[in-house]
Design a protein around this nucleic acid. Structure first.
Lengths: 212, 212
DNA sequence: GGTTGATCGTACAGTATGTCCGGACACTAT
DNA sequence: ATAGTGTCCGGACATACTGTACGATCAACC
């Protein structure tokens, strides 16, 4: 009998992580082959990972649980990358912005397929939807705050409506990351980052620079 | 017996349209209640429209066929609205741009729920996916051409990479229309159109104006 | 050698999709 | 009136996927 003090949860949690990673690898591969998460059945997933379906349901509540387990871990990594943007201020150059946005793209890029799967699953799985909405909400709120600060400090176009502009720009990035940056080779990202930088720079920061 | 010269297809086609509209009304209502198209079963749809499930399959191939039938008709309406944007040139004011974009938003807005459903169904229905990709591709190509023309004519920032910028801006609009403009009352659209105009104006046209 | 934990196979209920068919009903031409 | 035609309904069916349950198996470990 295992002692009551030795928590039995930790072994199980570790096992869950191992299985999760094994499955995510399979899912990633199937996604790269052009299938959507909705089209991938648990049976298929589990079979290609060499595991029985019943084992899956030992560790995961349902199909979406796999993505939820992954999302929780990745979220902070993304948030850390994005936070570099908020350090842009009156003293920053366009190159500084480019570096900050490039970092976001580069951190996001390897996770694009699974991220897209998560946004896909959000369409029919309410608990995934909640996660996704929370993340987007947080990102939008951060950018809105940055815009407000920048307007107060005079380095962001004062004519922009902060909340709405934050919404448009944040969702723009979301689509870009999931739809057309996905699958690009790192070298091909350069021009995409150029375009992203140009849009953000021209929209937010350029108007008050050329004017000054 | 109906004469062989009197095409029996026309009656059927008309009937199909009538049924399609009846069903789309139901779907629209369910979507407005916060459900996603994936979550709505044919059974439910058909039942709330007071029709049998077998009748549905007389007129439609599968679940996605309903959306495909609708999408074909609506596409040209959208395309017509967007084409106003391409008339912006060196002589146009920011107000002209705003009017053009406002028209796009206003034409799109009432169709937002069904459009979102179509983009949702694209995740698991390949033939819907094809339609959606074709439309986005066409829109992106139009904007890319506009950017190229504008750069040649000197009224659009020459530093922008045309293809990539077109991609980012087009997908930005897609998300906006489907995700957060959806459900807004017409009066609430004003500030959103302001933000949209500001982003497009600052990105494309403003840089070469303040500079000149 | 017996206990434990992890996994497997299988079976089951529930739900959805798409197909098929027989019957009911109305309209219409003869 | 009646037979043909178009339209719809209800139900049955095959298939597929989800999530749950349970007994069997196998390896590790005291």
């Amino acid at each position: 009998m295992p002692s009551a003090t030795r928590k039995p949860q930790s072994r199980r949690a570790a096992r869950r992580e191992a299985i999760r990673d094994r499955l995510l690898e399979v899912v990633q591969r199937l996604l790269d082959d052009g299938e959507s998460f909705t089209e991938i059945s648990v049976e298929r997933m589990v079979q290609e990972a060499g595991m029985s379906r019943s084992t899956y349901y030992v560790y995961f509540e349902d199909k979406g649980d796999l993505l939820r387990a992954w999302f929780g871990e990745i979220e902070s990594e993304i948030a850390a990358a994005v936070s570099g943007w908020w350090e842009i201020d009156a003293d920053s150059s366009r190159e500084d912005l480019r570096a900050a946005l490039a970092r976001v793209v580069e951190v996001y890029h390897p996770h694009a397929p699974l991220m897209a799967a998560t946004y896909d699953a959000a369409e029919y799985d309410p608990s995934v939807r909640e996660l996704v909405n929370a993340m987007m909400g947080a990102n939008i709120a951060s950018l809105r705050k940055h815009i407000r600060n920048g307007q107060a400090a005079g380095f962001i176009d004062p004519d922009l409506p902060p909340a709405e502009t934050a919404q448009w720009l944040t969702w723009m990035a979301e689509r870009a990351f999931h739809v057309f940056l996905r699958g690009l080779r790192p070298a091909q990202l350069r021009t995409q980052i150029d375009a992203y930088t140009a849009i953000v720079w021209n929209t937010l920061y350029a108007p008050v620079r050329t004017g000054a």
